Simulated scan of single mutants.
Amino acid sequence: MDLNFNSTQPIYLQVANEIEEGILNGSFNAGTRIPSTTEISTTFHINPATVLKGMNLLVVKNLLVKHRGRGMFVTQNAKEKIKKERQNNFYQSKIIKIIREARELGFTEDDLIKLIKRGYQH
């Protein structure tokens, strides 16, 4: 986990994002127990309530599940949910903007597809 205490992003969101990244890159597979709030808070010298707030965001998104007395575990379809959410965010934040700018520049759909294909060849 890589937390940036100088960032404007709240620590609890960084905790949630780092755990999500771990799920996406395979560090935390489905069914895997993630480090406890105590383990994370001790390692990074942050308040356990801050860690728990980040973890609870992932519980609400159904990426983690709490097992009383045993810890938090990655849900079975967490990786797919994260991919789908990030793909949607990519579309909303990048693709829509590219299409808008391409239209302003006079590119057709075919022109844009050719440019994308050219980018994949490099």
Rank of each mutant, 00 (worst) to 15 (best):
79 K>P: 01
47 N>S: 04
76 Q>L: 14
27 S>Q: 14
117 K>T: 09
111 D>C: 07
104 E>Y: 06
117 K>A: 14
78 A>Y: 03
65 V>C: 06
4 N>I: 03
112 L>K: 07
90 F>L: 07
31 G>I: 02
35 P>I: 04
95 I>M: 04
84 K>G: 08
64 L>P: 01
18 E>A: 13
79 K>G: 02
30 A>D: 04
107 F>E: 06
97 K>Y: 10
25 N>I: 13
8 T>C: 09
8 T>E: 09
76 Q>V: 14
67 H>S: 11
66 K>A: 11
100 R>Y: 14
68 R>T: 12
58 L>S: 00
24 L>R: 07
68 R>P: 09
86 R>N: 09
41 S>Q: 00
56 N>E: 15
102 A>H: 01
36 S>R: 01
110 D>K: 15
74 V>L: 03
54 G>S: 04
121 Q>A: 12
118 R>M: 14
62 N>E: 13
37 T>R: 00
34 I>C: 06
112 L>G: 03
92 Q>V: 04
114 K>C: 13
66 K>D: 11
111 D>Y: 09
81 K>G: 05
57 L>G: 07
22 G>A: 06
10 P>N: 03
109 E>G: 06
10 P>R: 02
5 F>K: 10
47 N>C: 00
122 H>R: 11
107 F>S: 07
89 N>V: 06
104 E>F: 10
36 S>N: 06
25 N>C: 13
88 N>T: 14
66 K>L: 09
75 T>M: 04
43 T>Q: 12
48 P>H: 00
65 V>A: 09
20 E>I: 04
63 L>R: 03
105 L>G: 13
91 Y>S: 02
52 L>K: 07
34 I>V: 06
11 I>F: 05
97 K>N: 10
86 R>K: 13
16 A>Q: 04
49 A>F: 09
70 R>Y: 12
43 T>S: 13
14 Q>G: 04
64 L>W: 02
80 E>I: 15
4 N>V: 02
80 E>M: 12
79 K>A: 13
80 E>H: 13
85 E>R: 11
90 F>S: 00
10 P>W: 05
103 R>M: 10
26 G>T: 08
64 L>V: 00
43 T>F: 11
62 N>R: 13
23 I>G: 01
36 S>L: 07
20 E>V: 02
39 E>S: 12
71 G>R: 05
65 V>W: 03
32 T>G: 08
13 L>I: 10
10 P>F: 01
71 G>C: 08
17 N>Y: 15
51 V>G: 01
114 K>D: 13
30 A>V: 01
115 L>G: 13
92 Q>R: 07
12 Y>R: 02
106 G>R: 01
46 I>P: 02
67 H>N: 10
21 E>V: 12
38 T>S: 08
41 S>W: 05
3 L>C: 09
67 H>I: 15
74 V>Q: 00
24 L>E: 06
54 G>E: 03
110 D>F: 11
77 N>C: 08
43 T>H: 12
1 M>N: 02
120 Y>G: 12
70 R>C: 08
3 L>H: 03
77 N>L: 13
17 N>H: 15
